[in-house]
Design a protein around this nucleic acid. Structure first.
Ligand SMILES: [Mn+2]
Ligand SMILES: [Mn+2]
Ligand SMILES: [Mn+2]
Ligand SMILES: [Mn+2]
Lengths: 219, 219
DNA sequence: ATATTTTGTTAGATCAGTCTAACAAAATTG
DNA sequence: CAATTTTGTTAGACTGATCTAACAAAATAT
């Protein structure tokens, strides 16, 4: 069984992997906030468990087994976040840190019960998909708000970043998942975007913000 | 901050301590299921943190600081058990193992929210008191069913043992906290006790069982 | 194509938490 | 009280997860 540390490495590997399932040692070190030699030694451990393939000087390759372990931890993380928001009244900006700990609890029934109580949700409070109990993840492709054009009407569907600071920024503007936005115009100089929604008749979002917002086009 | 391991040692120390707050190294080793040298080395660590006093060949003495840390972990454990039973539909026999893990989560709001949602309960699903947020524990003294006499009417209030097997034994007989029992007779030979309750008109409980049941006398 | 930078490896150390083997002190028993 | 048993200590080793220092390979830039 994966240790807490191993589970955290596997999650990072899962998130960093490219189409070929490759991850560079140094990316992983940056992501995990540990030194290169620490990662070097950890990938050898993960290889012994069959969760990745390691060859000297090559990017590591996460195996299907490794991906499954990672997806099941991510499942526990996202179910927890959803439970905290929907059943315990937390704000979407408060739940990540708690879920980071709860995801390591070994108690299948605990998470099954959460899932049941929520009616088997498929996305978490930040719009990310919740992997199923087999570790399968259904990827939905959304548009980046930053790629939308003036005149379009879209619905906020997910975020590419869920840091507390960003979530608090969105709270401050009453922006939440499901909010419908009308794109009034886009500034050519800095790509900032002018939108209207709810009782906000004209709000400007910088590119730094709009590129982190994923939307669904409303026809 | 106490590590998970340290928290588990402190809980055991808290539970094993006598009136003078003393615990023998070997009791602790038995309780924690580790070797004597492991405990010997751990108590030196706990002393460095101010959680106990250690002198060679003497029982260790848990300090008020140590007791507080322990009580707050026990608080998280018991709040979790109560939440699992009252808010998530688990049976009282299923919750201990999960709580054993959840008690180590560092997220005050998570437990405050549980507490709030349940209306600030003072006992856990097994009748044990829940320490308050300052680590103060209100001890209620109950009678042992094994000390009761024929003719008395009592209410099941708590358990001195909460193993899954014992809880399943009680489930099998519809015995739960709050059940009112009439003591019909007591067998002098083996101290077994004959009781009636609910639709059970005569059920025999061995001393092994009755000594684990704590009751309140009904006048 | 060489120099420089970036990326990755090895060696060796540290800390937490555990163990066994050997021994010593304290408690119990006859 | 002496012998035996129980309890506690020390020494030394191991594993998991981390680090720094030194170095080597690969990638990039001049
Ligand atoms: Mn998260
Ligand atoms: Mn985590
Ligand atoms: Mn318990
Ligand atoms: Mn525990």
């Amino acid at each position: 069984m994966a240790s807490q540390t191993e589970e955290n490495y596997l999650k990072s590997l899962f998130n960093l992997a490219n189409e070929k399932n490759e991850v560079n040692i140094s990316e992983l070190a940056t992501q995990m906030q540990v030194s290169l030699p620490t990662v070097n030694s950890m990938v050898k451990t993960l290889q012994k468990n069959g969760w990745l393939i390691y060859e000297k000087y090559k990017p590591v390759i996460i195996t299907p087994e490794g991906k499954k372990v990672a997806a099941l931890v991510i499942r526990k993380h996202r179910l927890t976040e959803m439970f905290l928001v929907n059943k315990m009244g937390f704000g979407w900006e408060e739940v990540h840190e708690i879920a980071e700990q709860v995801e390591h609890i070994h108690a299948p029934k605990f998470f099954e019960r959460m899932d049941e109580m929520m009616g088997f949700p498929t996305i978490d409070p930040h719009g990310s998909p919740i992997p199923d109990a087999q570790g399968r993840i259904q990827e939905i492709k959304y548009l980046n708000l930053s790629d939308c054009k003036a005149g379009q009407v879209v619905k906020l569907a997910a975020l590419t970043n869920s840091s507390t600071e960003f979530l608090e920024f969105l709270n401050g503007r009453n922006l939440r998942l499901g909010t419908e936005l009308s794109i009034l115009s886009k500034e050519a100089y800095d790509q900032s975007i002018l939108i209207s929604y709810l009782n906000h008749s004209s709000e400007t979002l910088s590119e730094k913000v709009s590129e982190k917002l994923l939307v669904k086009l409303l026809d």
